[in-house]
């Protein structure tokens, strides 16, 4: 998900401008010159200026030096397979979290968690022999810690836990 600086910079300019405008239209506190509108205005302006600087490559000269420092050794042993959809795999974890938000109340914690674990494990390259037992057992372990010991009200849904 490496985007050119001009794209991220422009996005920041737009976001900053929107924030500044959003601050501008907030109602002031009567009888007071400084209210809730000032801070977003300042931040929005700052953000937009930073965005502009990034678009025009100011401060970019600092970045070249950093390429020399090998940050993650050993991880580049085999080049990762490149496909069109390969990069989208990164979106799987947040998608699963959203799935949890929508499904947990209906399906219950155990089932939702089992699905999440199974999908994540398989996506990371494990065989079903590992993924299936893990998906079956880990939700109960987590439920024991959070639901039983820490009293987090986890939804029971279709499959209530035995405790």
């Amino acid at each position: 998900m490496r985007l050119p600086d001009s794209v991220t910079g422009s996005f920041l300019v737009a976001l900053g401008a929107a924030a500044a405008y959003g601050g501008w239209i907030l109602p002031p506190v009567p009888g007071q010159p400084v209210g809730p509108n000032v801070f977003p205005l300042v931040i929005g302006t700052g953000l937009a200026l930073c965005g502009l600087a990034i678009v025009f490559g100011i401060g970019h000269s600092f970045e070249e030096e950093e390429e020399l420092i090998p940050l993650e050794h050993g991880q580049a042993v085999s080049p990762p397979p490149q496909g069109k959809l390969y990069g989208l795999r990164a979106l799987l974890p947040p998608a699963l979290l959203l799935f949890y938000v929508f499904a947990a109340d209906r399906l219950g914690f155990i089932i939702t968690a089992a699905i999440m674990v199974y999908v994540t494990t398989t996506a990371l390259g494990a065989k079903w022999k590992l993924a299936l037992p893990l998906a079956a057992l880990s939700p109960f372990a987590i439920h024991l810690i959070f639901g039983k010991l820490l009293r987090v009200p986890l939804p029971a849904g279709l499959l209530p836990t035995p405790w």
């Binding site: 974890p93 699963l96 979290l97 968690a113 999440m116 674990v117 994540t120 494990t121 398989t122 990371l124 390259g125 494990a126 590992l130 993924a131 893990l134 998906a135 880990s138 939700p139 987590i142």
Partner: peptide, 9 residues
């Protein structure tokens, strides 16, 4: 592949 799912949960 066993650590990451637990972290997700």
């Amino acid at each position: 592949s066993t650590v990451m799912p637990i972290i997700m949960l």
